[in-house]
Design a protein around this nucleic acid. Structure first.
Length: 903
RNA sequence: GCCCAGUUAGCUCAGUGGUUAGAGUGCUUGCUUGACAUGCAAGAGGUCGCUGGUUCAAGUCCAGCACUGGGCACCA
């Protein structure tokens, strides 16, 4: 890789990220920098990447999550840790199966037509194609993962580990099979766990239906009214329940009712569960299609009638409704009820409906035989580990959320009736039907010894394998150097969205399987929303593609804009404006570097400053500010304060290094102050630039490497260079011991006076409308000896930055005629106006400006008062116009005031 | 219903009990100043959600309330 400062001649005026990003990605990877390097510190730092699904393309969420991890990894690597960031992908059972099925549908095929084996071949083809695509996109993002260690949740080793854990948990009684009400997605045709169901409030109806008594009553009504939101489930009713304490029903005694349209006899049962206040106080009981009814069914020994097929249509138990879709059935059934006089009334009712988190189809509570993980004991340990701070949450408030979920946890349904995933390591005996659970295909039934066995067709919940991810990726259960060195991992970095899905389960399974926590810290970050903090989604059409942003503004700008806002709200706003701002920042860095390099042609880097006499106040100041920067960035990164670290860097680079130091140093670089002063300036510029690039590297890896490689004596890659240490005063200024103390504070205090003074003069210039091209005569007067010395010492700097042709500094100056005066601390400032402004000309100019403003103002007013404008223009534009109007009024008033003063 | 977070400039957000509450962006004015017009300089813009309390001192700590966002649990 060509390097050296001669490269400056090829530096364009504008930073063009597209030219260089790929070059560095390839180079870093070719040189093997991303894989663990033997470390001088011997301490290790490891992160396992939350594996992206193989279904998709890189989205903003990945970009954010991975940028944060990359920053941590690069930071720790530069600090000298032996660093491993482990990448991988997730097979994402249902999600991937759905995507592949959609593809098949376009070909007129279906998974059923293909058959399981052929279908799985197709999914593997998909994986080969798209699994790599996401990796290449991650590379483009600059992710410094150890690519050679990448893995996939359905790798051979990983699958073996999954089976091992399953068998172990089964043998220890944590995994069991049972008939329970689970959430069933009729579209995916599989069971879902509780957290795979998303609830949404909908405005629906509550239907009141008459159930007649079996025996006709002599007096009063001969029916009970029950209320339901899902009338079609009545086909599976096997009882009606009332609260035993409910006076209204006390006289009834033991009774039977007749299920309308079906004619089944339903016992009237008493159960405390029924809320007398709700509906009519009478509850239809459908034990096979409602979790609470299920419990009641168990308790009262009711019959369980499942009326639904797997695809959500009514089965043979539904009589004349057989074959209808559940909602179609609802309509028909309601019509029939109404016609036959069973429908008492219909009320509007708002309730929550659960949908499949993968396909948004409303789920049905469904009685079926599934496999579960008993969670209570596992959760207890996971609670303890966090309470004992063996695992810490950042920010800490997530801890409560985590604990709250674990304390009320239900058993985890882990079997899925899909094809893509880890098939259950369970075989059923064709003879006795007993399950045999084993890591490898068993030879015979463990119960009766017969050899005719068939493997369970179900696969495991995707999150089962994900929960093992931190240790299986490192070589568990075989063990080895990687596992020993890097497990437990240092940090887990992910969004709050998958705290329960993934983080909590990793802690439970990690501890269960390895006896250790899977990670010491969990950094939970927000999700990336759009400008209005709305979740990005295809249906809303507000998705911003990070790849497009990278192309338009550069990857460094994207990374910086993702990391830069900090908020505890669940969604961070993302806007192109912000990225554009950081693209400009990258350009600023580029040009500042270009400037430094242009002035470093004859410079040879040396260990220390040689000529201390030519060190000026501005030098001490910038070194002091830089020293603070090192401290801040380091500390912020240690505490996951990414945005604060980014902010410190932005502020220092733009607001201090560029705006002040570079400007202050220009005359010295031109040689006006002598060769020695120039040399010192070069040394400081080089030193600060090099250090700042390093501090910035984790955030903006590409531009920093590009510039770093152009520095004289750059060394190897910036990503392997040592993280800057905070500098001591003695290191730079080997002054006599007595003078070292407080040198930084003093330099900053003195420099602040100069800055304030220069700003004040500029303000006056601007207010007096003195053209920037005109040089001024300036008098500074103070009786404060200390300040007088500072001013005198820094006369060249002041002269240059306020554009003065004459600068007089003394404690005894008479105020010049026709001048303005102002005050900074105890320094009086006089600027001669003589010859600077032609009074008549100035008045003319003010009047002209006022006229223009008036014109703009009336246009603006007209616009705003125009009803059409309000109607047609987006509110954003109206707001902007209002603001413009406000500013116009203010400016015009200021000008009027100036005009008055000139008279 | 329970839990969490938030409420600060037009917008998006920082702010660690202590001078005059900051940044980016937007807006206004001026400027081809020698690295950068993706720039420079200057300016305008604030009831720190409301009400109390603690304190010499509160945007910051405490309590209550209001509103916004999110999560969890639910009665058919």
């Amino acid at each position: 890789m060509g390097r050296g400062h001669r490269a400056i001649f090829r530096m364009k005026k504008r930073y063009q990220p597209q030219d260089i990003e790929k070059k560095w990605t390839d180079w870093w990877e070719k040189r093997g920098y991303f894989s663990p390097q033997p470390s001088r510190r011997k301490a290790t730092f490891s992160i396992v990447m939350p594996p992206p699904n193989i279904t998709g393309s890189l989205h903003m969420g990945h970009a954010f999550d991975l940028t944060l991890q990359d920053i941590l990894t690069r930071f720790k690597r530069m600090q000298g840790y032996e660093t491993l960031w482990l990448p991988g992908t997730d097979h994402a059972g249902i999600a991937t199966q759905n995507v592949v099925e959609k593809g098949l549908a376009k070909e007129g095929l279906s998974r059923q037509k293909l058959g399981r084996e052929k279908f799985l071949e197709r999914v593997w083809q998909w994986k080969e194609k798209y699994g790599e695509r996401i990796f290449s996109q991650l590379r483009g993002l600059g992710a410094s993962c150890s690519w050679k260690d990448k893995s996939f949740t359905m790798d051979k080793e990983h699958s073996a580990a999954v089976r091992k854990v399953f068998v172990q948990l089964y043998k220890e009684g944590y995994i069991y099979r049972g008939d329970y009400i689970i959430n069933w997605c009729p579209r995916c045709e599989t069971a879902l766990s509780d957290i795979e169901v998303e609830y949404e409030e909908i405005k629906g109806k509550l239907y009141f239906i008459r159930y007649s008594f079996k025996e006709k009553k002599k007096e009063g009504k001969d029916y009970l009214v029950v209320a339901t939101t899902r009338p079609e489930t009545m086909l599976g009713d096997t009882a009606v329940a009332v609260n035993p304490g409910d006076e209204r029903f006390k006289k009834l005694g033991k009774k039977y009712l007749i299920l309308p349209l079906v004619g089944r006899e339903l016992p009237l049962i008493l159960d405390e569960y029924v809320d007398p206040e709700f509906g009519t106080g009478a509850l239809k009981v459908t034990p096979a299609h409602d979790p609470n009814d299920f419990l009641m069914g168990k308790k009262h020994n009711l019959t369980f009638i499942n009326v639904l097929n797997k695809d959500g249509t009514i089965n043979e138990k539904g009589g004349i409704y057989q074959g209808l879709d559940r909602y179609e059935c609802r309509r028909k059934l309601l019509a029939d009820l109404k016609q036959q006089g069973y429908l008492e009334k219909v009320e509007d009712y708002t309730y929550r409906i659960g949908s499949c988190y993968r396909c948004q189809t409303p789920v049905e509570p469904y009685l079926s035989r599934q496999w579960f993980v008993r969670m209570k004991d596992l959760a207890r340990e996971a609670i303890r580990l966090v309470k004992e701070k063996q695992v810490e949450f950042v920010p800490p408030h997530w801890k409560k959320n985590y604990l709250g979920w674990l304390e009320n946890i239900h058993d985890w349904c882990i079997s899925r009736q899909i094809w893509w995933g880890h098939q259950l390591p369970v075989w059923y005996c064709e003879d006795c039907g007993e399950p045999t659970v084993a890591e490898e295909t068993p030879g015979s039934c463990s119960a009766c010894g017969k050899i005719e066995l068939k493997q369970d067709k179900d696969v495991l919940d995707t999150w089962f394998s994900s929960s093992l991810w931190p240790f299986t990726t490192l070589g568990w259960p075989k063990g080895g150097e990687k596992l020993e060195k890097f497990y437990p991992t240092s940090v887990l970095c992910t969004a709050w969205e998958i705290l329960f899905f993934w983080v909590a389960r990793m802690i439970m399974m990690g501890f269960k399987c390895t006896g250790k926590v899977p990670f010491y810290k969990v950094y939970i970050h927000p999700l990336i929303g759009d400008e209005k903090r709305q979740k990005m989604s295809k249906s809303k059409g507000n998705v911003i593609d990070p790849l497009k942003i990278m192309e338009d503004y550069g990857t460094d700008a994207l990374r910086f804009s993702l990391v830069s806002p900090q908020s505890d709200s669940p969604y961070l706003p993302f806007s192109k404006d912000r990225v554009r701002g950081y693209r400009n920042f990258a350009n600023k860095i580029w040009n500042a570097s270009r400037f430094v390099l242009m002035n470093l042609e004859d410079f040879r880097p040396r260990e220390k400053l040689e000529d201390l006499k030519s060190v000026r106040l501005s030098d001490k100041w910038i070194l002091s500010r830089y020293s603070s920067l090192v401290k801040e960035v380091t500390s912020h990164l240690e505490h996951f304060k990414f945005s604060e670290a980014a902010h410190s860097l932005y502020q220092f680079i733009w607001g201090e290094f560029c705006d002040w130091y570079i400007e202050l140093v220009k005359p010295r670089l031109s040689g006006k102050e002598g060769p020695s002063s120039r040399c010192t300036a070069q040394w400081i510029l080089y030193y600060i630039l090099k250090g700042t690039l390093k501090l910035l590297h984790p955030f903006m890896p590409f531009i920093t490497e590009e510039i770093y490689q152009r520095l004289p004596e750059a060394g190897e890659s910036i990503m392997l260079s040592a993280w800057p240490e905070k500098i001591g005063t003695g290191y730079f200024f080997p002054l006599p011991t007595g003078e070292r103390k407080g040198v930084r504070g003093k330099a900053e205090e003195e420099m602040n006076l100069l800055i304030k003074l220069i700003q004040e003069v500029r303000t006056v210039r601007s207010e007096m409308m003195i053209p920037p091209s005109k040089k001024i005569d300036l008098w500074l007067r103070t009786s404060n000896e200390k300040n007088l010395d500072i001013l005198k010492e820094n006369k060249p700097e002041i002269t240059n930055l306020v554009k003065a042709k004459k600068l007089a500094i003394d404690k005894d100056i008479t105020k010049p005629a026709l001048s303005t005066s102002s005050l900074v601390e105890d320094v009086e400032i006089f600027i001669s106006l003589k010859g600077l402004i032609d009074l008549d000309k100035e008045k003319k100019r003010l009047r002209a400006n006022l006229e223009k403003l008036d014109k703009d103002l009336s246009t603006s007013k007209k616009k705003l008062s125009n009803a059409n404008f309000f109607k047609r223009a987006p509110s954003k534009i109206v707001e902007k116009e209002k603001e413009k109007k406000k500013t116009l009024i203010q400016t015009s008033e200021r000008l009027k005031k100036r005009l008055e003063e000139l008279k």
